[in-house]
């Protein structure tokens, strides 16, 4: 598989933000990984890593080394919806454990697992910067803050 033309055009524009030369060019790698994950099925496949390596003049292992370092890059396919529950201290103090328990119950997914019907991937994440609007979840890349259990139930219901 080759990268879609649309993304190649985007990445050619992206690398102009950085200094010329190989070292400058590779600076576009993390934004490019984000775009691939967004556009190409929600995870970074080995093929995508090879394509990105070719684009950025790197070895596939270097791309893998970067992709595997950052928690936001997914190296296995997710369910249809991804729920991330912050379990850091500010959220923990105001109900994150209850949010997580309820999310498990409602989705049928285990933490860092996908529900048997493939609909939900459930994850715990570290501080998302929503400390004074805690507790929170990130559902499909959107924050839901000042969350209540009723609101969680409604949000998950909408995905069903």
């Amino acid at each position: 598989m080759a990268l879609p033309e649309k993304l190649v055009d985007e990445f050619n524009a992206l690398v102009k933000n950085y200094p010329a030369g190989k070292e400058g060019k590779r600076s576009g790698l993390i934004p490019a990984l984000h775009r691939c994950q967004e556009e190409l099925g929600g995870w970074v496949t080995p093929e995508i890593m090879e394509d990105l390596a070719a684009f950025f003049d790197l070895e596939p292992a270097e791309v893998y080394g970067v992709a595997s370092f950052y928690p936001m890059f997914r190296l296995t396919p997710p369910g249809k919806h991804v729920i991330k529950v912050c379990h850091n201290i500010s959220c923990d103090l105001v109900g994150a454990r209850d949010v997580l328990a309820k999310a498990k119950e409602l989705t049928g997914a285990e933490v860092h697992g996908t529900s048997p019907d493939g609909k939900f991937t459930l994850e715990v994440v570290e501080c998302q910067g929503c400390c004074s609007t805690a507790p929170m979840i990130d559902l499909d890349n959107t924050f839901h803050e000042n969350l209540t259990l009723d609101e969680l139930e409604r949000l998950i219901g909408e995905c069903q």
Partner: peptide
């Protein structure tokens, strides 16, 4: 001025 996005590492 350019924007650059991180990927979740503290």
């Amino acid at each position: 001025i350019y924007m650059h996005m991180g990927a979740g590492a503290y």
